[in-house]
Design a protein around this nucleic acid. Structure first.
Lengths: 155, 155
DNA sequence: CTTATTTATTTCAAGCTTAAAGGTTTAGGC
DNA sequence: GCCTAAACCTTTAAGCTTGAAATAAATAAG
């Protein structure tokens, strides 16, 4: 059950890439599960909420709902519910966009920004530990390779 | 919105690892979204269902529910619903475990195995294209690095 | 044998996620 | 101005996901 798959000496490239994909998924899920658990027990929040607050924290003037869902690459209706709950909890607020009554702009409240700052600090520390197996050069190298995948996929 | 973040020449290691994590997440989600879309339009199925069938396909004698959730690293109650729908559709069946009336063993039906074979073949092809930016050596190298993360995290 | 604990699984409530459909509002052609 | 199309967003239905509680059966302890 816990045995590592041996790497065949020679095989079709598609198998090699498939193996990479499965490992990528496994590692991502491991890290995600850990972060989720920590966010829950330490801050009583969820990963999606953290992601939304992280995006908002980079835009002091706020973001339109469509910009938010575009940045996070999630569906349009998805952020509606998450923002709804953040607003309920006083971490975010919605402002009217002058000249466009369809759109609304979401931004963090002071309380939300302060809460996110605390969370982000711990989050960075958790990630640092979870990816501690890789040194800075390795991490940078892998980041560049992932960028190549992203550039190819987002044509 | 689509601008790539520049990599500072020098920074704390935790920032480098954080950047890697964000990129890892982004790339994984890109690939996942594409696979999900393809599974939906080509086969009318979902990623979680595919994952469960993939696990079952490796065990001709079937798996207990707890073994299944352990392999997929998802919660216990989660697989209950997914297997339920697979059984409804005639892709999987549940058998009693002799000597233990609590447990049940799930395995693919012939129909399920044949359907999965078709899906898996396409799936491998999609992955091959999505990760086409990396050559075999690079893919193997990244797989090994991800393994190091997994070994460290699963102590 | 009886009780307690552990194991295997399901149920539940809450929240996340998507695609599709619907409701407004804005912008563009004519 | 008027009509169509596009943009912005929410709602809905279905399914996924989790953690916690509940159920039931097997095992252990006394």
């Amino acid at each position: 059950m816990t045995s590592a798959d041996p790497t065949p000496l020679s095989e079709p490239t598609s198998k090699t890439r498939l193996r990479l994909w499965l490992k990528l998924l496994k590692a991502t899920r491991l890290v995600e599960a850990d972060l989720r658990e920590n966010l829950r027990t330490e801050f009583g929040t969820t990963l999606p909420r953290f992601d939304v607050m992280a995006a908002l924290s980079q835009y002091a003037d706020g973001l339109k709902m469509s910009e938010l869902s575009g940045l996070l690459r999630v569906s349009n209706g998805n952020v509606t519910g998450i923002v709804e709950r953040l607003v309920e909890d006083g971490f975010a607020l919605r402002e009217a966009v002058p000249g466009d009554r369809r759109a609304s702009r979401v931004r963090l409240t002071r309380k939300g920004a302060e809460e996110f700052a605390r969370q982000a600090s711990e989050h960075e520390h958790w990630v640092d530990e979870l990816l501690g197996a890789l040194g800075p050069e390795e991490a940078t190298g892998m980041t560049e390779q992932l960028d190549r995948i992203l550039r190819e996929g987002a044509q």
